[in-house]
Amino acid sequence: MRRWLTVFFVGGSIAYRGLFNWIRPAMYIPTMLGSPLFQLIFFTKLGQFAQAQSRDFYIVGNSVQVCAMSSVYGMTMAVANERWFGTLGPLLASPANRAAVFLGRGMPVLANGLLVSAFTFVAGTLLLGFRPGLAAVPALALVVVVTVVSCTAFGMLLGSIGLRAKDFFFAANLAYFLMLLFCGVNIPLDELPGWMSAVGRCLPLTHGIAAAREVAAGASLLHVWGLVLTELGIAAAYAAAGLALFRVLEHESRRSAVLDAY
């Protein structure tokens, strides 16, 4: 168990530094802080211009969604870059527990996602006049943590797909943009066609954002418990799917050399 935990924490954080392309300040500040900030301003102003929803609708939606900057891109890189660096061979040749290796990489991603979200919420408060009651902050924080967990789990699945797919960056970008459309970030789910809102309900973020909006407007945690649990369930499902796919690919790779470009 101790072995498992050190692979999980120590291994996870070393690998993250090695695999996450944007860790240097020169890359980190523009992509992880700059881009979310301007995304927030863009959609809030667009919403104001379209006169569709309240200002807080966009601020909460985008502040939560930007965690995907870390969860989707960061996690995809933390898994799929193994192939790019040619380190997948040595990794697979090691006896380490795969779940510990795989889930451990989610930890730093998760922490970073929280930071990005928190930064964007603060920016919304300072620049755009977002004013949740102080009492709402702890509940809001909890909801955001859960949502970032599920987004990171989704990133794990994308990362595993990226191990096999040639162009994982394409998938990560596409996932990020589609979240803006499907997950109720900028458009209420009930204004989307039925099939689109159905897709949205199977994705991470959707329930978390809905819960965050209610909590920010003063609702208690008890009131949004169902949404939070659903989001957690979605997280578990994606993490399990990602790990299972990783295992399948490893097995397939031994059988028919599918990952053999390492």
């Binding site: 070393i14 690998a15 090695g18 695999l19 860790i23 660096f85 380190t87 061979g89």
Partner: peptide, 12 residues
């Protein structure tokens, strides 16, 4: 050339 984490030190 490949198979190393380029951005990490040898020790890491």
């Amino acid at each position: 050339d490949r198979g190393l984490y380029e951005r990490l030190s040898a020790r890491d």
